[in-house]
């Protein structure tokens, strides 16, 4: 099969974060491996975990200023807990969580 070079001169197609997260194979556990101390989160003026998490696991609940944790999206980098200690993060149970195809 020959390659049509013109196909590869087109711009790289940008994917949304949701689309990119959907590329990663994950096996979800029933229970969350992440917990947030809501009081400390409310006291964090910068709300750092909202933007520091590369998978946008943490979302602000505008009703009560609390933090919603979509643990199923987690890519297991550990950045949240290192950024703010009001996050308690544990490895998902063995065999659960992400499996990268490339890495």
């Amino acid at each position: 099969m020959s390659i049509d070079v013109r196909e590869y001169l087109k711009p790289h197609v940008h994917m949304s974060l949701e689309e990119r997260l959907a590329l990663v194979k994950r096996r979800f556990a029933d229970e969350s491996h992440i917990s947030v101390d809501q009081e400390a989160f409310r006291a964090d003026g910068q709300k750092a975990v909202l933007f520091m998490c590369p998978a946008q696991v943490f979302k602000l609940n505008p009703d009560d200023d609390s933090c919603i944790v979509n643990y199923e999206d987690c890519l297991e980098c550990g950045t949240c807990q290192v950024t703010r200690r009001y996050v308690t993060w544990n490895n998902p149970q063995g065999g659960y969580g992400v499996t990268y195809h490339y890495g």
């Binding site: 196909e7 590869y8 001169l9 087109k10 711009p11 790289h12 197609v13 940008h14 994917m15 974060l17 990119r20 997260l21 590329l23 990663v24 933007f51 520091m52 590369p54 998978a55 890519l75 980098c77 950045t79 990268y100 195809h101 490339y102 890495g103």
Partner: peptide, 29 residues
């Protein structure tokens, strides 16, 4: 956010031409 840093890097005029025609097959951190 880290993904914003990545997206701006990928869109830079010195970087974007190197990625032409490529399809993202994995995102990881």
């Amino acid at each position: 956010a880290p993904y914003d840093m990545l997206d701006e890097f990928k869109a830079h005029p010195m970087i974007a031409p190197l990625l032409r025609g490529g399809e993202t097959v994995e995102y990881a951190t």
